[in-house]
Amino acid sequence: MQPQAEMRSPMCPYPFRVLEIAEEMPRCMTMRVAPDDATGDTAFAPGQFYMIYVFGHGEVPISTSGDPAKSGELTFTVMAVGSVTQALCALKQGDVIGLRGPFGRAWPVDLVKGRDVIVMAGGLGLAPLRPSIYHMLSNRNDYADLALLYGTRQPQSIIFRQTLAHWREDAPIDVEVTVDTAGRDWPGKVGVVTELLMGRRPDPSKTSALICGPEIMMRFSAYALMELGIAAENIYVSMERNMKCAVKMCGRCQYGPFFVCADGPVFAFNQVEQLFRIREL
């Protein structure tokens, strides 16, 4: 038996207060929150997620989207797609939410040290990847070439515009953005994200890739990277499933033999490649 002090339910949230909340695009908000009492901790690894509770509405799993080096606060980017995320997006500065976490396996930022890293993001998938980019840029000498290939539906759905502009102009990372469809006023590229790999000649022996986006985007991206010779074990994806507990108890996030909450959300592609081929898993 565990001593009583450690028996606090893993289901109990801790209070965090909204410092700032700003719109990324319609129905999509980025918020910074800080612990509202001494019990809250803010240390996390890039790619990990928290369960966010909105008073009376319920709870949703959301990955952190902020800089892991920044202590005392956490950043989340949320799209209003259901009742809880709608309530989250309607929060105001000063409101209090509940947080539990961080949970799950992080992006392998230590394992890929010394290598070229290609980060591929689809849509809101850029949010769980941003902490890994912050981390690699803060420890830039630990990595060889860095590239961010970001695809989204249309120019209006590009998130983190300021961050992207800053990285593009001032940071030692190669940033490319493409959109699926755009009007004539869009000066950038049009096409799916895998097209940004065309013309690239990554060295398979020293390149790793981190991918996050819709499952179909991750599948096509992973196979496109494998066609360039990059091994499945050097490609990482972040999975999404329904979750209620985040501690392997509610059973809902099962993905074949894995629990996405604890064995993921980040998986090496060779762990899940067979599962990707099974429909309705």
């Binding site: 008073f55 009376g56 319920g58 709870e59 059973g251 809902r252």
Partner: peptide
């Protein structure tokens, strides 16, 4: 079988909330 869902409820004042766990099924 151990799968569950949670239900978040509030009272009429809106100032008191509870979370309940219930058996659920795949």
């Amino acid at each position: 079988c151990f799968c569950s869902k949670v239900e978040d409820v509030t009272d009429l004042t809106g100032g008191h909330a509870e979370r309940w766990r219930e058996w659920d099924s795949c």
